[in-house]
């Protein structure tokens, strides 16, 4: 993938995350902060489908943004074609792993498994 496309995704995911984190914070502020952390309330969030979907999107945005950011840092730290290939595929794998693990949490909580 061209670097410009990757960086457009990087900036896009950052902007998207700002918007969604704002919603996330506003949701927390709809009640007292300590209440928002009550077990029932947390579980209720996951049962509320639009909000659970938003969390899922936020998870994807931040995983992509964060691990691409890490990829950039590592590319600037050291050079070499094997190393760079490892970094590129490694960060893709890390993104996928984090998204998979986070989705599992969102799904299980949403279905009342946990």
């Amino acid at each position: 993938m061209r670097e410009s496309i990757i960086m457009k995704i990087h900036y896009g995911t950052a902007l998207g995350a700002v918007a969604l984190v704002a919603v996330h914070i506003l949701m927390r502020m709809s009640q007292k902060f300590s209440d928002s952390l009550q077990y029932q309330n947390v579980i209720a969030n996951y049962h509320f489908l639009p909000y659970a979907l938003m969390l899922e999107v936020l998870l994807v945005l931040l995983s992509v943004h964060g691990f691409n950011g890490l990829r950039v840092i590592l590319l600037e730290l050291k050079q070499g074609s094997t190393y760079e290939r490892m970094i590129n595929y490694g960060s893709l794998a890390a993104m996928a792993a984090l998204i998979a693990y986070g989705s599992r949490t969102i799904l299980m909580a949403g279905m009342g498994v946990s």
Partner: peptide, 9 residues
């Protein structure tokens, strides 16, 4: 310049 060690760095 649109390279992994180009303008975006």
């Amino acid at each position: 310049v649109d390279d992994s060690h180009g303008i975006w760095r």
